[in-house]
Nucleic acid binder design. Structure first.
Lengths: 333, 333
DNA sequence: AACGTGGCATGCCACGTTGCAATAGCTGCC
DNA sequence: GGCAGCTATTGCAACGTGGCATGCCACGTT
């Protein structure tokens, strides 16, 4: 067991309170006393006890990140940025995986086990807007992704409609006319996929291209495997295509592999655009053209939101923070 | 603020202690009392206070994972498995990034800030064996990767010498004779890269092939970028090669992109084998042949080690756990 | 009737910290 | 000389929980 304030106090011949004052940097401590206390602290290798501070002060110094899965490159990259951003504010990051399970997400909303954390960054997957709204007052919460909870919960996200429109418009500008979309998720309440469909259709409409439902390929999840599978279905079903917009880079990478194996050339026969700008895409062959959300900004704003609620007004009106994005043109389209 | 034992006790008309007994599942509580207490718990939505339990019991229910960077696919996949494994034992996982910085790693060794965690899983990068040995008694620690701290600290790792030999031997079996190695890190104390060099050379020697120092390409880090850069140097320096063994899949993916851009075909002109079996490699084009460490086993054993020290003998002799690996042959070699 | 036993419930304390209020010592000023 | 005003230090209480010891009661045994 590590040394406590009491032991340091005995060693330095002062009261516990004075040691506490030295540790917390309180000004009214005589330089000579401070030095003596500091010496005792160093000798005993005193370190403040986090549990006691947490109990006394109500702050644990922990923030939870709840995402479907950390192994996903997009979430991995985001988690890295969040860890750094949290560290800037002397927080540590706890990772929770929901596996995209609604019950699991609901439980997290109700409060990470025993209020261990000071705040929660949640990337919901399966939760409905009602679920999000019906929430007991617990720790501050920030949602990642666009959610239909405006006015009630803070959230941080790119404008998916605009981003999807940009991606599709780029394909159109390259002269593509038979553009598929891989990634709709009609089985989920989560609105992100729906918004990307909306942007995709809007771009087609703006260019006067017809919307063909056979070109909208739904997926169960957003893994490479799902992208590969979707491309297989698309190629086997037979509608002619010359481009595909995938709702995530992982879907795009899976789709590209399948297309290449089926003998299509990229971008010759088929142009591909992804979404997320994960590092994989940058080093894929061909390198993946993609929508790049400003992930550092997402991390910064999400942590900033929590900080504002913790240090500022916890009941301030909910904010909807829109993160900039831009199209990165590489080899695939 | 959430309800406390005291409030539940008042509500149920019993003592705090009795509520505590109900919560902790202590047997000697009359069924009728238990029911009344349970009702009060439900009404008040009582949840045990983690801070108080931590202070009282000395256990936080948290385990830290300290790795160079979570955004790295290998560590991302591993972190996901560790989160799950920790959850099985009702632990939550805290992620710390060292950025491969020796000072940062040292500080973590000295104890994650204020003993917030019950255990630490550390994947050292820059620490020397001396650093690892000189460590005050703190929370239980498990090292990932082969470290020269045998007998003093638990560690969990694949047999890198054997794995590198397997990879190289596979290339030789394919008829390759000019086999480069991308990944040595002579500037680091960390012994993993050195062991992979050793296995690589051993396989060459066993096949009677000469070891050519010009074919061993050192890298600063293990990113795709470093692999791409290494391949560039290799191709520009001119030694003839027909295969390359990369010490990580990320290096391999970067190297493959560069080789393809330089007009080499894979596996025709150049066979490539990686190490780690990250999902990227599976969906790369060509799909990457690689050494696959049993990551689930790493996670299981690492968490198991911590559990054994926490629930068993903290002073038991250090264990060296060797994780199985196998070669997965795909398209690249 | 006294005693022992076992089931059930309770009170006290300590874990290490910090907010609050109070105290002790000192200086300077009328 | 006394008092205000300041600096430096201290004691007490409380955060919510669980270990320990003990109290209380009913019932069965001697």
């Amino acid at each position: 067991m590590s040394a406590s304030l009491r032991q340091v106090a005995e060693r330095a011949g002062v009261s516990i309170r004075t040691v506490s004052n030295v540790v917390s940097g309180f000004a009214l401590v005589a330089p000579e006393t401070r030095a003596r206390v500091q010496a005792a602290i160093d000798e005993l290798q005193y370190r403040p006890n986090a549990a006691a501070r947490h109990l006394r002060g109500g702050r644990s110094g922990l923030v939870a990140l709840a995402i479907p899965e950390i192994a996903s490159p997009y979430f991995g990259e985001l988690a890295g940025l969040l860890v750094d951003e949290a560290q800037k504010r002397s927080w540590m990051l706890l990772v929770q995986q929901t596996g995209g399970d609604a019950d699991h997400e609901r439980r997290l909303l109700d409060g990470v086990r025993g209020q261990v954390v000071d705040g929660l960054v949640l990337s919901p997957w399966a939760l409905s807007p009602q679920d999000l709204r019906r929430r007991p007052d617990a720790v501050p919460l920030v949602l990642l992704g666009e959610q239909d909870a405006d006015g009630l919960l803070d959230h941080v996200a790119v404008d998916s409609v605009a981003a999807a429109r940009d991606a599709t418009a780029h394909l159109i500008a390259q002269g593509r006319t038979r553009i598929a979309a891989i990634g709709p998720q009609p089985h989920l309440e989560n609105g992100t996929a729906a918004r990307r469909v909306e942007g995709y259709r809007a771009a087609l409409a703006e260019a006067g291209l017809p919307a063909d439902p056979r070109l909208e390929i739904p997926v169960e999840r957003l893994h490479r495997e799902d992208g590969a599978d979707a491309m297989r279905r698309l190629l086997e079903a037979g509608p002619e295509i010359d481009a595909v917009f995938c709702f995530s880079d992982q879907l795009a990478l899976g789709a590209m592999q399948t297309a290449l194996r089926h003998g299509r050339t990229i971008p010759g026969d088929l142009a591909v655009v992804g979404f997320d700008d994960i590092e994989d895409g940058r080093y894929a062959t061909p390198a993946l053209t993609t929508i790049s959300p400003d992930k550092a900004a997402i991390a910064r704003e999400a942590v900033g939101c929590l900080a504002d609620r913790l240090d500022g007004d916890p009941a301030a009106p909910a904010r909807r923070i829109v993160i900039p994005h831009h199209l990165i043109v590489r080899d695939s389209a």
